[in-house]
Amino acid sequence: MARNLHRVLTPANTRSRRGADESRLTQWILIGIAAIFVGLFLVLPLVSMFYEAFRKGPGAYISALTQENTLDSIRYTLTIAVLVVPLNALFGLAAAWALTRFQFRGKALLTTLIDLPFAISPVVVGVMLIALFGYQGWLGPWLRAHDLKVVFALPGMVLATVFVTFPFVARELIPMMQSQGTEPEQAALTLGASGWQVFWHVTLPSIKWALLYGLILTTARAMGEFGAVFVVSNRIAGEMPIPLWVDNLNADHRGSEAFAVASLLAFLALGTLALKAWLESRHQEEEAAGLWTTSSPVINSGESETAFTTQTPP
C-alpha cells in the first residue's frame, strides 16, 4: 500500500539531474536487470492473461463477458462496492477527524486497530463472520428465529469487504490532516463559522485529493477482494462477485472464459492506476499553481508515519 510520493514532490523534469556517479556501463547493466525483472515479473503475467483471454477471438471474449452469470456477477460486485465505499468513506472521515484533531486515551490502540486489516489474512475475517453470524454462531439462533441471512448472502459479503477495505480512506486522510494542522479550522471557528461549515469549506477542500485517492483504492480493493468473500460466499452462480466467478469458471474447465472475466478485473486495475496517475498530475498542477500547499498525500498502510516524516520537504 506504500506509494511513491516523488512524482508529487519533485516535478518530473528535474528528477534526472541527480548526477549518477556510476559509469554509463554500470548504469545500463542495472537498468537492464531492472527492465528484465519488470518484464518477466510484471509485464509477462499481464500479457499472458490478455493473450489467454483473447485466444479464442473477440467473439468468444464478448460472449464470455455477456453471459448471464457474468453480468450477474458484475452487478453483484458493483452492488457490494456501492454499499461498501460510502460506508468506508464516512468511517475514514470520522476516524481521521477524531485521530488528528484531538488527543485522547487509547489513541494508539485505535490507530493499531485501523491497521489490522493490513496485517490479517482475509480468510480469518471470513471465519470471524461465520463465528458471529453463522447459524451455529453467536447470533445464529436469533438470526434463524427472524429468518435473517448474513453469511452466505449479500450482507455477509458486504461486511467482509468492509472489513478488508475500511482503512484505506482513513489511512489516506490521517497523515494529510496531521500535516495540515488545525490553524485554518480554528481561525474559521473564531470567525464564527459553524462546525459543519468549517468541515465543508475549510477541511474538505484541503483533503479532497487524499480523499479521492482513498476512494479509488477502496473501490479497487472492494471489487477485487477474494479471500474473505471466498469463505462467506454461497457459491450460487449469479451471486458471486467477479473474483469468485473467475475461480468458479476456472474450476469448470472454462479456462478461456475465466481469463476473459479476469481481464475485466485487470482492466479495472490498470484503469485505477491510470486514474490515480491522472489525479496525481492534476494535484501536482494545482499545487504548482500555488492554490494551497500541503505535504503530499500518502497512500500506504502502516508506514504512513515514516513516509510522512521522511517526506516533509526540507
Binding site: M49, G224, E225, G227, P243, V246, N250
Partner: peptide, 9 residues
C-alpha cells in the same frame, strides 16, 4: 491487480 487474477495468471 486482484490477487485471484494474479493467481490465475
Amino acid at each position: 491487480l486482484p490477487t485471484a487474477v494474479a493467481g490465475l495468471t
